[in-house]
Design a protein around this nucleic acid. Structure first.
Length: 351
DNA sequence: GTCCTAATAT
DNA sequence: TATATTAGGA
C-alpha cells in the first residue's frame, strides 16, 4: 500500500539555511530520524519549489531565521496559512521577543541553535497537531475519523525510530519499522476515537425514565439489565445504567441514614419515608435540580444552539413530557467543548 | 459465559 | 462531581 505515507517514518522535511555546513548537519540529523529531507540554501529557491506545485510533497519546513523584514513575516504567514505547512524556525538567538514574533506569525515552533536531535525527533508532532486542528473544525464525527485515517497519521505511540545510532537503515530495519508503524496507525485511529469518546449526560427526562423503570420493578429487582429493558432507550448500555444505579443507590442510602439520624427510629418502617425525603430535599436551594420523583440531583443541562434548532422533536426541557411506553432513541450531538464531546439525549419516537 | 455490584479510574 | 471502567464473585 501507500508506504510513503506511513508515519512518522518518511516525514518530508524541507530545510532552509543559508549556512551550507549547518544545512548538512541538519540534513544528517533529520535522516537519522528517518525523515526525508530536502535542503535549500535560500528562501527564494525553497519558495519556488513550493509554488511550483509541490505543496503536497512537503510535510514540514524547518528554516533558519530568514525573515529579517516584515515581508519575510508575510512569507511565513503564507506558508503556514495558505499552504498549511507547519513551519519551524531556528535561530541562535532565542530572545523571547524574537521567538514571540515568529510564533505569533504562524511558526509552529522555535528551535534555538544548535538544534539537538532530540528536538528533531518530535517535530512531526507539529504536523499532527495541525492535522488535528483541521479535523476538529469538522463537525461530523464519522467524517472526522475517516479524514484522519486517510491522511498521514502520526502516532504518539510510535516515535520516529531515531533512537538507533545507525546512520544507514537496513532493509530489515526499514521493513520492521514500516510494519510497526502500520500497526500503530490502526491503534491510533482507535485511540483517536477514544480521545473523542465522551460521556452520557443523564438529563432530567432520561433520569425520570430511569426512576420509572426502577419504581415499576420495585426495589430489589431493579437491576441494570431490567431497567434497561424497561427504559427502552436505544443505544443506552447496561453499563451506563449500572453506573447510574450505583450512584442512585448510594445517594438513597445516604439519605435514609440521614433520615434515621434525625427522626425517631419508629419511623424506619414507614412506607412514606421516601415522601418525607422528597419533601425535605425539594426545598434545597442551588443550581441543582431536584427531581420530583425522588431525591437525586440532576445537573441542569444547557442545550447547544444547533441542537435546539435542528431537532424539533428534542424532548429536553422542563415543559416536555415523554411517553414511557414508547421506544426512544438518542443520537449524539456535539457541543464542541474542548476535546471532549458532551452527548445529548435526543428523543425520537422509534415508530 | 452472563450479570451484578463495589471499587477504582478518568 | 458524574460517569466509565474494572475486578471479582454469584
Amino acid at each position: 500500500m501507500d508506504q510513503e505515507r506511513l508515519w512518522p517514518y518518511g516525514l518530508r522535511v524541507l530545510v532552509i539555511d543559508n549556512n551550507s555546513s549547518y544545512l548538512s548537519v541538519m540534513e544528517e540529523l533529520l535522516i537519522k530520524c528517518s525523515y526525508r529531507v530536502k535542503t535549500y540554501k535560500n528562501v527564494r529557491e525553497a519558495m519556488s519549489f513550493i509554488y511550483g506545485g509541490n505543496t503536497q510533497t512537503v510535510d514540514l519546513i524547518i528554516s533558519d531565521v530568514f525573515f529579517p523584514t516584515e515581508d519575510g513575516l508575510l512569507v511565513l504567514q503564507e506558508v503556514t496559512s495558505k499552504f498549511d505547512i507547519p513551519t519551524v524556525i531556528m535561530s541562535s538567538n532565542g530572545d523571547t521577543s524574537i521567538v514571540m514574533k515568529y510564533i505569533t506569525n504562524g511558526a509552529s515552533d522555535f528551535l534555538i541553535k544548535p538544534v539537538r536531535i532530540e528536538e528533531l525527533k518530535n517535530i512531526w508532532q507539529h504536523v499532527f497537531r495541525k492535522q488535528i486542528g483541521k479535523n476538529r473544525k469538522m463537525s461530523d464525527n464519522v467524517q472526522h475519523v475517516d479524514q484522519l485515517s486517510s491522511c498521514p497519521l502520526p502516532t504518539v505511540l510510535a516515535p520516529p525510530p531515531c533512537a538507533t545510532r545507525t546512520t544507514g537503515i537496513t532493509d530489515e530495519a526499514t521493513a520492521t519499522l514500516e510494519s510497526a508503524t502500520r500497526d500503530q496507525i490502526d491503534t491510533t485511529v482507535t485511540d483517536f476515537q477514544d480521545l473523542r469518546k465522551s460521556r452520557l449526560s443523564w438529563t432530567i427526562q432520561l433520569h425520570r425514565q430511569f426512576i420509572a423503570a426502577v419504581d415499576s420493578l420495585g426495589g430489589e429487582k431493579a437491576v441494570p439489565k431490567k431497567i434497561l429493558e424497561i427504559m427502552k432507550v436505544k443505544h443506552l448500555t447496561r453499563e451506563q445504567v449500572a453506573s447510574h444505579l450505583q450512584k442512585y443507590r448510594l445517594r438513597q442510602r445516604k439519605l435514609t441514614q440521614l433520615l434515621h439520624k434525625d427522626d425517631v427510629p419508629s419511623s424506619s418502617n414507614n412506607p412514606n419515608e421516601s415522601t418525607i425525603l422528597r419533601t425535605q430535599f425539594n426545598s434545597s436551594p442551588g443550581s441543582m435540580y431536584f427531581d420530583q420523583d425522588e431525591c437525586m440531583e440532576i445537573t441542569e443541562y444547557s442545550l447547544p444552539k444547533d441542537a435546539l434548532s435542528s431537532s424539533s422533536n428534542c424532548m429536553l426541557g422542563e415543559g416536555n413530557n415523554y411517553s414511557p411506553g414508547g421506544f426512544q432513541d438518542f443520537r449524539w450531538a456535539s457541543d464542541k467543548q474542548g476535546s471532549e464531546t458532551t452527548y445529548l439525549w435526543n428523543f425520537e419516537a422509534d415508530e
